[in-house]
Design a protein around this nucleic acid. Sequence first.
DNA 1: TTCTCCCATTGATCTACATCAACGCATTTC
DNA 2: GAAATGCGTTGATGTAGATCAATGGGAGAA
Lengths: 195, 195
Amino acid sequence: MFELLFQKFDEKIGLTEEEKELSSSFFIPKKIRKKQYLLQEGDVSKYVAFVEKGLLRSYTIDDKGSEHIIQFAFEGWWISDQFSYLTGEPSEYNIDALEDAELLLLTKQAEEQMLERIPKFERYFRILLQNSLIATQKRLINSLSKSAEERYSELVQACPETLPQRIPQHMLASYLGITPETLSRIRKQLSLKKV
Amino acid sequence: MFELLFQKFDEKIGLTEEEKELSSSFFIPKKIRKKQYLLQEGDVSKYVAFVEKGLLRSYTIDDKGSEHIIQFAFEGWWISDQFSYLTGEPSEYNIDALEDAELLLLTKQAEEQMLERIPKFERYFRILLQNSLIATQKRLINSLSKSAEERYSELVQACPETLPQRIPQHMLASYLGITPETLSRIRKQLSLKKV
DNA sequence: TTCTCCCATTGATCTACATCAACGCATTTC
DNA sequence: GAAATGCGTTGATGTAGATCAATGGGAGAA
């Protein structure tokens, strides 16, 4: 159950066997099925979740009723609503599973205890946050400066196998901030260009 | 010189007098003039900067030559290119001053030493990162889901005095991801609505 | 099997915003 | 003081992408 988590830890910070043992005790394993919510708008985000298996997304629904996907989380990624988790305010986001998933949940108290017992996790979580911030800034600048076609091409180029395989097209559109119709037309354009 | 910095520290983590004394030794005070660069595209970001006085911005220039502002940094804010600072890669961003400014610079070595000597700064920087991430995600979702007029109204509503006073209009446009012409028209629209 | 329902596609039309160009005003530069 | 430069405004026109509507195919439920 914890293989992937430990592997990820090892990439950033080395852990001894005792530390692994100890750290694993702070996590709550949980399986959820496709379409099931991990977090619903209005609830408080009590956990950050590490994805051992499966695929989740976080998204928000705007005043006009359309969904905007904030993040996908594949195996080895973390997902949560940082704001709600941090402040205890009710969340404006939803998190649900696109595929049956196995998660490792960390509550805030567990996280704090873990940081106290094994301080080098401070470093680990700081690195995670920095990477998220860098990626989100890049995505923001892209959305402000590039065309939908450019954004889609770059996205698919980044993960050519997994993304189109595992994520339905209308969700990619939502992630890119365009309508499914527009994405369909863009794909047609691109396929014509290639030939 | 360090008043504002210590005040900000105190808001998140308490510091003793010795800790203040010690922590201040890690910073390099620096004054820069309006229009002067703190970081130029292609250089490596060696510092994170705390703004004691004045106003800076970070921005990037796209393939077509237009500027996209990533962040403004008023008094009490931090600014840097996290990616370059972290990896040592040359930066794709520029940082310059919109007003004469007084800064406190922290190099990576200094930061590491400071974290080692006063570990509660881990917490402080983690909070900073979390807040940046939350704000950037919100801005991203706004840019994907709201009209330029909505984004401008909300931005001005957030800081009605400082923003339009201290930031030239074409830079607000760049921050919002629209052209100066469009912003001008939006402002006209809004002023007509009010009357 | 048949009946839904959901999803991707395609066409026709609409609209928010960009682009290009010109002008007036203020500020800086010589 | 004249000249140059930069910024905000306004108008005319172009375009990426949204919206609305219809169609066909595939997956799951009865």
